[in-house]
Design a protein around this nucleic acid. Structure first.
Lengths: 218, 218
DNA sequence: TTTATATGCAACTATGGTGTAGCGGTTTCG
DNA sequence: CGAAACCGCTACACCATAGTTGCATATAAA
């Protein structure tokens, strides 16, 4: 089993998923995975995020190669391409939700939570770009988590508005969209040029809340 | 030649392209097109933007159907799928450049130009989303126009900063990215829910320049 | 009306990606 | 160590899409 494809760079400090997951889709796990198998499955999911976020139409061949694995091995765990994508989306959504929860959006001061969450989101692997852009096509658990994420985001925005951190007349739906768009952009930038998540988060929050203009007459 | 597929809604008030274009790619135009042929070609390009921005992997069959045209007719004008996409990108870039130029970015007061350009961009058909997202893969003329667009955008931002409309410490590259991300978002919203371009532009500019927060101590 | 150009349609080839199956060697784990 | 699980590899069937060709019909233009 020695093989040395064009693997994607190793990762990751956030230590995301502990397989076996309670994944319910059309996965091919009869019973507990052996250690090496679990490792391989993790790697595939991880790499799929990365590859698909760069090229949403990437073939399984490419994904497998990037994971340093034979194409048929992918099929050994995931019945179809769609099953892989579903599983991957679920993992990505889990990571995003965790990044949000760790920012204590319900209890911490809104702006503190915003900083923390933004930095967390920028830090996690860029994979969720693919998932998020397909938000409309999420199935099963991933869709549910996505719904929760949306709600949590809205509640945080409401808290911020109630505390005066967001002007009363601002449409929170739009605010959320704008936030999402800016995060996306920060991602792209980090993917290309690297950079410190905290610094990027700082700048993003500053832009979103204070704008790039000289300030309004209040 | 009567045919009634699932055409895309008719358009458009901006009256964009006047074929025959000085397109230089691998198009299949020997000599001047007949009136109906030019019409068909316009329609195909127009519809391709729309369809591909929703589904970047859409087949030529889908595009042709949306244009109310047989698949083979597409091949009659464009040698390959790629040739169609290139031509489409070129058209989209032309439209965007025109939308910018009409805002007089070099001469009008910066904020006036910003409003005008933003409204113009939101108003034009949503097709350029596909093209802009593939900016890295632009060939030939489209790439050149894209470069010009980038430059014009940066110059406008510099003028705005020089005039005090943008704080001196703001990184203009980031400002440009943020602007782009917000435009993208405004597009999506308009595509889904409709809405007045001017109002959307107003809100976008307000968010970008003043933020959603209560204002900073200046 | 006449001619050249366009279009729809059907039929075809070629290619590439998806998904399956089995064999032989390798790794985990009891 | 030994059984079971895992993985790489080869070979295959299948299907969707790209791209081509020829012909009959329809339309623009002179």
């Amino acid at each position: 089993m020695e093989r040395e494809g064009d693997q994607v760079a190793e990762s990751s400090q956030r230590e995301p998923l502990k397989l076996p997951l309670p994944l319910d889709g059309t996965l091919r796990i009869d019973r507990p995975l052996r250690a090496d198998a679990a490792r391989t499955m993790r790697k595939i999911l991880e790499v799929a995020e990365e590859v698909l976020s760069k090229d949403p139409a990437a073939t399984l061949e490419k994904i497998a190669a990037a994971a340093g694995v034979a194409r048929t091995t992918v099929y050994r765990r995931f019945a179809t391409r769609e099953a892989l994508i579903d599983a991957m989306s679920e993992v990505a959504m889990r990571e995003v939700e965790q990044a949000i929860d760790e920012g204590r959006p319900e209890t911490a001061p809104p702006m503190v939570a915003f900083h923390q969450i933004t930095a967390n989101l920028i830090e996690i692997k860029s994979g969720w770009r693919f998932t998020m852009n397909q938000a409309h096509a999420l199935h099963g658990t991933a869709a549910k988590i996505h719904g929760r994420i949306f709600d949590k985001c809205m509640r945080l925005l409401e808290r911020a508005q109630a505390s005066g951190a967001i002007r009363p007349e601002v449409d929170l739906i739009w605010a959320r969209s704008a936030y999402h768009a800016l995060i996306e952009q920060a991602f792209r930038e980090r993917a290309e040029t690297g950079g410190d998540p905290d610094a990027l988060a700082e700048r993003l929050i500053d832009t979103l809340f204070n704008g790039i203009g000289p300030g309004r007459p209040s």
